[in-house]
Design a binder for these strands. Structure first.
Lengths: 211, 211
DNA sequence: AAACCCTTGTGCAAACAATCACATAATAAA
DNA sequence: TTTATTATGTGATTGTTTGCACAAGGGTTT
């Protein structure tokens, strides 16, 4: 792409803007100012404008941004103008909750394959439609089904091995729910969803507060 | 506590260090150098030392850090040397997965009350032992059970109202799983666990990569 | 007790990120 | 057509975070 040095925090905020705009669209709001959008997302108005300025001039001076148009542009930037095919590894409580989560589909993400090692689970059909494959089938299934993103919901102890499998099968991006830091080779990305780290943050602040 | 400005990223990393040290302790490793610890957590060695230096001198020059001792100190800093009482609001797929998640308990976090609005769910007993209360009971139950942390797993549309309820009941810290930005009054904290934002990050990077 | 490791703790510089403040441009009113 | 009004886009500024490089100091060996 053109100028590659976009702050990663900007990307995260674009995602928030996109969500806020989606909401505004529902409410039939046509035009929004950086002010209002910023407030909705809990950031500074100048930040909104600067974030957007990295990618172009989407607003009209003296007016604001056209909700529909801006949403379209942001989605294009983030790559949300297409569907993303995901594989889930690990059908525990969390895994089940994830495949059942309808928010993903709404956003263009769908689980097209799910894997586990438990023989009691393999072969079963989930309410959401997917049949559970054994991990051994991962390499071929991932290739056949053209998976874009791997989602790890295994126990921590198996997360790194799972990541390696996914990568060897050609997957470039991983969403990791296991509470470990996964080592990735150059050029591959992992994003961690880490409940306990967030809780620890809360615990820390509560502890400070009290002193 | 000393009011020196601790970067919030430092707190997040302390949480990672704590987890890594816990693992090392299991493996009966007694001493660890900032080098190794950094590698395990995917950060710079100087960063580890600097993070720790905010809170004291825990290492021995020429040697490293005593795993057990450092873990103890970090846990004390984060406030993990006690139990934290949590309330969960919203018993959907995700909520169920969260109460069943044994990692929380291991870390000292426990769900001592769960709430929902669905009359079909209220009164039922969960496998993990909690009885589901109706939301109307939230104010009194939260006070009676001395809840420290509120966890929101409701649909996005109800998240803000839920947060307000929790705050009015005296809760200072919220972990939010709903995909909205929750507005909090001064002095209260919210941490967001946001799957789709993370996925959007992956989608963005995959999209860039391809160009 | 001196010389030699080794790894911590930290001053400083560089990179990165957020915010301010205003010139700029579009629209509407006079 | 001119003026007033409004909100964007952005250069300048301030603030924060990271990483380097090395002095400081504990441990070990001779």
């Amino acid at each position: 792409m053109k100028f590659s040095k976009i702050p990663s925090a900007t990307i995260t905020r674009l995602s928030l803007y996109s969500r806020a705009l989606e909401e505004l669209l529902q409410e039939h709001v046509n035009i929004i100012a950086s002010d209002k959008l910023a407030q909705k997302c809990g950031v500074n108005p100048a930040q909104v404008r600067k974030d957007l300025a990295y990618f172009g001039e989407f607003g009209v001076r003296g007016v604001g941004y056209f909700v529909k148009e801006l949403l379209f542009e942001i989605k294009k930037i983030l790559g949300l103008n297409r569907r993303w095919r995901m594989a889930l590894v690990g059908i525990g409580n969390l895994g089940l909750a994830l495949v059942a989560h309808d928010n993903f589909v709404k956003q263009g993400y769908e689980f097209v394959a799910v894997f586990d090692v438990d023989p009691k689970k393999v072969g079963r059909r989930l309410p959401s439609g997917q049949t559970i494959y054994h991990m051994d089938e991962l390499p071929t299934v991932v290739k056949d089904k053209k998976i874009d993103i791997g989602v790890i919901a295994t126990p921590a102890s198996q997360a790194q091995a799972t990541a390696r499998l996914l990568i060897e099968a050609g997957i470039k991006a991983i969403l990791n729910f296991a509470p470990v830091q996964i080592q990735m080779p150059e050029g591959y990305i992992v994003e961690n969803v880490d409940f306990t780290v967030k809780l620890d943050n809360l615990a820390y602040h509560l502890t400070m507060e009290a002193v």
